[in-house]
C-alpha cells in the first residue's frame, strides 16, 4: 500500500480544519480585526487626524473610549484606521514575498543543478540576517515610504517562501504524473504552472498566514523606530512609538495598539497552525 505523498495534502482537510476549535478562534480573531479595519468610519465616526489641543492626553471617557493622544486625537479612531494601514502593508508585502519567493524556489527546485545551488546559498545568507535588521537596511537604503516599507518587508520574507516552495517542487518533479506530462510533450512552463504549482499552493498558503503575522510585527517595529509610514498617518507601530513617550502619564496610548498587534498576530498564528495541521496532519506530531 503506498503512503500518500508528503507534498499532497491529504483529502478532507477542510473537515479537519473545521473540526479544530483553535483554528476557529483564529478565524474569529482575524475576521474581527479585518471587519474593524474595513468598517472603521462606520464603527467610530471620529476623524483620526483631527487635532484638538484642548483635549490632550485625556484618559478614556465615553466620548473617547480609549482616550486621546498628545495632539488630542481620538485613539480609538486612530487604532481602527491604523488597522487598515497595518493590514494592507502586511498583505501587500506578503503577496509580494509569496509571489517572488515561491517563483525563485520553484525555479531552483525545477531547474536544479548549479542554479539551485547558487539560489540555495543566497537564501541561506538572506536567512542568516535577523528580520528586523534586514528590513532596517533596506528601508535605510530606499528611504521611508509606504511602498518602500512593503518592499523591505517583502525582502525579509522571500527566503522562507523560496524554501517552502523549493522542496515540494523537487518531489513533484520526480513524480510519475509530471514525467507522464513530459512524455506527452508538455512544455516545462505548462508542467510547472498546471501540474506543479497547484499541488504545492496549499503549503505556501499556510506559510503565508504564519508569516503575515511576522510582516505585521516587522511593520510595527520599523514604524516604532521611525522608519515606517510617515506621521500623521496612523499605524500600530507608530502609535506605540508616540505612546511610548507618555507611557507613565497615559499608558493606554501604547497599550491599545500593542493589544491590537497581539490579537492579530495570535489570530494569524492560530489560523496558520490550524491550516497546517489540517493539510498535513503528520506535522502536528513533530
Amino acid at each position: 500500500m503506498s503512503a500518500p505523498a508528503a507534498v499532497l495534502p491529504a483529502r478532507g482537510w477542510t473537515r479537519r480544519f473545521r473540526a479544530n476549535p483553535t483554528s476557529w478562534l483564529g478565524v474569529a480573531l482575524i475576521a474581527a480585526v479585518v471587519l474593524a479595519a474595513l468598517l472603521a468610519s462606520t464603527i467610530w465616526p471620529l476623524d483620526p487626524l483631527e487635532q484638538n489641543v484642548a483635549e490632550r492626553l485625556m484618559a478614556p471617557t465615553a466620548a473617547h473610549p480609549l482616550g486621546t493622544d498628545t495632539f488630542g486625537r481620538d485613539v480609538l479612531a486612530r487604532l481602527l484606521h491604523a488597522a487598515r494601514i497595518s493590514l494592507l502593508i502586511g498583505a501587500f508585502s506578503i503577496a509580494l514575498a509569496m509571489t517572488i519567493g515561491s517563483a525563485i524556489g520553484i525555479a531552483a527546485g525545477y531547474l536544479g543543478g548549479w542554479f539551485d545551488a547558487a539560489v540555495t546559498s543566497l537564501l541561506d545568507v538572506l536567512l542568516s540576517f535577523p528580520t528586523l535588521l534586514l528590513g532596517l537596511m533596506v528601508v535605510a537604503m530606499l528611504g521611508p515610504s509606504m511602498g518602500n516599507l512593503v518592499i523591505a518587508i517583502a525582502i525579509t520574507e522571500l527566503a522562507p517562501f523560496a524554501r517552502v516552495a523549493r522542496a515540494p517542487t523537487i518531489t513533484l518533479k520526480g513524480r510519475d504524473f509530471v514525467e507522464a506530462g513530459r512524455a506527452l510533450g508538455f512544455s516545462d512552463l505548462r508542467l510547472v504552472v498546471v501540474h506543479i504549482i497547484p499541488n504545492l499552493l496549499s503549503e505556501v498558503v499556510v506559510v503565508a498566514s504564519l508569516w503575515l503575522a511576522t510582516a505585521i510585527r516587522t511593520e510595527a517595529s520599523l514604524s516604532f523606530i521611525g522608519l515606517g509610514v510617515k506621521p500623521p498617518t496612523a499605524t500600530w507601530g507608530g502609535m506605540i512609538r508616540e505612546g511610548f513617550e507618555n507611557i507613565l502619564d497615559a499608558p493606554w496610548l501604547a497599550l491599545a495598539p500593542s493589544l491590537a498587534i497581539l490579537v492579530t498576530v495570535l489570530g494569524l498564528n492560530l489560523l496558520g497552525d490550524g491550516l497546517r495541521d489540517a493539510i498535513d496532519p503528520r506535522a502536528r506530531r513533530d
Binding site: 503506498s2 505523498a5 499532497l8 513524480r175 510519475d176 504524473f177 514525467e179 507522464a180 501540474h195 499541488n199
Partner: peptide, 10 residues
C-alpha cells in the same frame, strides 16, 4: 507507468 496513484495528477 507502474504506480496508478503517483502517475495521475490528484
Amino acid at each position: 507507468f507502474q504506480d496508478p496513484y503517483a502517475s495521475l495528477n490528484p
